[in-house]
């Protein structure tokens, strides 16, 4: 298994703000950075995409989905991205 999962990386986390949200399953308020529950459903993010390449700079990478290879960042949600492909799935 990879890094511990956080609530904010779960599809069922509705972010109230940058540090907390509501879990759609439990309806409870949860802290974004706290460890998630067993029902964790990973949110698509650039960092999870097979077309994402890290760069030398922390928290900045490259999207190889389009010919211009623009910069992106691993934490960018990709729920609506037409080019998103899960890495390793």
């Amino acid at each position: 298994m990879g890094a511990p999962t956080r609530h904010m990386d779960c599809r069922n986390f509705a972010p109230i703000d940058v540090v907390k949200g509501i879990c759609h399953l439990s309806k409870e308020r949860v802290q974004a950075d706290d460890a998630s529950c067993p029902s964790f459903d990973r949110l698509p993010r650039c960092g999870e995409c097979e077309r994402y390449s890290p760069s030398d700079q922390q928290d900045v990478g490259v999207c190889r989905a389009t010919p211009d290879h623009p910069m992106t960042y691993p934490g960018l949600a990709a729920v609506t991205c037409e080019w998103f492909r899960w890495r390793g799935r």
Binding site: V18, V19, D59, V60, T72, Y73
Partner: peptide
Amino acid sequence: GNVTKSFGPVVSIAGKFGIRKEEVPM
């Protein structure tokens, strides 16, 4: 709700708004 100071994983910008620090480089 004003984020006038940075804390933990949050960086205060423009005197009022909090942004996740991992988003700051981009």
